[in-house]
Design a protein around this nucleic acid. Structure first.
Lengths: 161, 161
DNA sequence: GTACAATTTAGAGCGTGCTCGAAATCAAGC
DNA sequence: GCTTGATTTCGAGCACGCTCTAAATTGTAC
């Protein structure tokens, strides 16, 4: 099935607030922090901890200068972290990536393991969300009943909750 | 649309491994731990921390004796914890429940707030799961290509990952 | 050149949520 | 009664992931 997508005719100017391109000189750590949402402390911590596979550029004086690839990788790290991957595992992953092609089996295994964990937690979360929704229903019900008829107690010694 | 579900004809005996009923004398903390999946250390910690709204029974000598309602509440706590509700918040919730009927607005607000957070994290998790799946696809693709034709490098200086 | 803000490092500190330890006490079997 | 193992309290300890500090250095604006 072929489908003609309404292509943007002139992608010259995007009205989306895309982040401005990283200047060739790179970004200060403060800018990198703004763009990634990661504090400067944590940026340095991630680097120390070996999460950052790219080698962040430095000025002659030793200040970090972040380029797009650094930001990309750091954002990747934040997403892995957001799925609950421990720092240690991100570190291992970074080492595999840094080692270059040839260890795709290991990367695959690492990601598949992690995927299984994330999927399991997703299921658990969904399940527990139902419970929360049930609780919310109960309280809304009680409030509706209470407001409609103050003196009628809809439950005598109901179970707590 | 009405649909006849194949109903269990005689629900007299359930073959499911339902947990045996809690004896009237109650369960030891070790048993309660087994049934809730919460370590005895953590059971005591939860009680200390004010998460347990039910008052756990004691033997004359001071040993805890858990009844079904205790287990129910503790399991509820573990589910709230599993959705990322902090101990402090579970504690507040327990206080509201302990205070009895009349604070349903507060309970509702607490649960609604939490629901929103859980829903947001669910969305984020789903989004990030896609990224993980993408990575897995990439590695599977590389492995398939590599196995099919050892000497052909499908990418020269590709971006890291 | 001077002032001032930003950045550097290594290490200490902190918040959360358990997890463990020690000494005392209790309970169950013999 | 005695032994043995479970349980008690409560404070300390620990793993994790940041977060902050301090003193030195660098970069920028004037």
């Amino acid at each position: 099935m072929l489908e003609i997508k309404p292509s943007r005719q002139k992608p010259k100017q995007q009205t989306e607030p895309l982040p401005p391109a990283v200047p060739p000189a790179g970004l200060t750590i403060a800018e990198a922090s703004r763009r990634t949402g990661v504090s400067v402390h944590t940026l340095r911590y991630y680097e120390r901890a070996g999460l950052v596979v790219t080698v962040v550029d430095r000025t002659p004086g030793g200040r970090r200068r972040y380029h797009q690839q650094d930001l990309d990788w750091i954002l990747m790290c934040t997403k892995l972290r957001a799925t609950g991957m421990p720092i240690k595992t991100v570190h291992r992953y970074a080492q595999l990536v840094a080692a270059g092609h040839g260890n795709e089996e290991e990367r695959l295994a690492l990601m598949e393991d992690h995927r299984a964990e994330v999927a399991a937690r997703l299921d658990e979360l969904r399940q527990n969300l139902k419970l929360i929704d049930h609780k919310i229903d109960v309280y809304r019900g009680r409030l509706a009943a209470g407001e409609a008829e103050q003196l009628w107690a809809p439950e005598g010694r109901a179970k707590a909750g």
